[in-house]
Amino acid sequence: MKHIRFIILSLFLFCSFLVNGQDNLLQEALTLYKEGKLIEAKAKIDQAAGNEELAGNINTWYLRGFIYKDLYKNHPEEDVTLQYRSESIKAFKRLSTLEGAEKFQSDISKSLKYIATTYYNDAIRSLSNAKFSNSESFYDHYKNAIVLADAQTDLQASEVDYYLSLGSKYMQMHKVDSIGNGVYLQSAEKSYNKVLAIDANNIKANYNIGVLYYNEAVSLISKMDYDEFDLVQFSSIEDRSIELFKKSLPFMETAYRLDPKDRNTIEGLAGIYFSLRDFDKSNEYKAKLEELH
């Protein structure tokens, strides 16, 4: 069935070319595309897209979508500057708005899903690099493409997974951030909050955001130089630290409620209560930890 669809498309294209001289551009673009001359095909199809008459032709946008998609596949390194994927998406999006596009819906959807997948891969791959600032942008492109492919797509699971990973990446960067301006930490917090907005009972997001505040509270005290502050100033730093320990507590408690056997969470709670000088509570959790042995 799928093969027949492509035959129909091809016939449809060529029948159109025969009845309209304007369509030479499309015919040339198709020929070049089939010969694998994608750069030349791109030039022709761009010209066709700029032509008032051809801009309303569904074949223009169908072919343009495929040419740009293949340009990306053959030259992914050029995508950053030449935006092949986003041009392909634009073409398929435009195609969807034109009369008669329904018959291509399945092809459009598959192509968009393919492009979405490449964006998702880029988003995830970027997280492994030191320079990962474009990861979220790739992820946003993925979302746009996948929703265009299928408006019913449930993004919640990938949102949760992606923002947990992004949050952890920011936490890693914060650890090695010598400038220490806290930007990475704020970004990590933002990422985890995105997960919690989707799923308030997500164990990892609750635990990680609890750890985030806990670590920040600890850092305030542990990084203090002895001569940096007098006791009056120390008091205000200690207030801020206590505030952060208290902020950490409900997240860690939620993580514990959701998984009372998790050693890391129990250790976290023992640490928070110890730092809040509630030693009875801290010992309670230490005892629970012992029970798990």
Binding site: S165, Y207, N208, I221, S222
Partner: peptide
């Protein structure tokens, strides 16, 4: 990637001891 998405608390730091110091 997702096997690394759990954060870890700072270990070996006793804020109460640092405060007393």
């Amino acid at each position: 990637l997702f096997s690394f998405n759990t954060a870890s608390p700072q270990a070996g730091i006793d804020v109460n001891a640092k405060t007393k110091a």
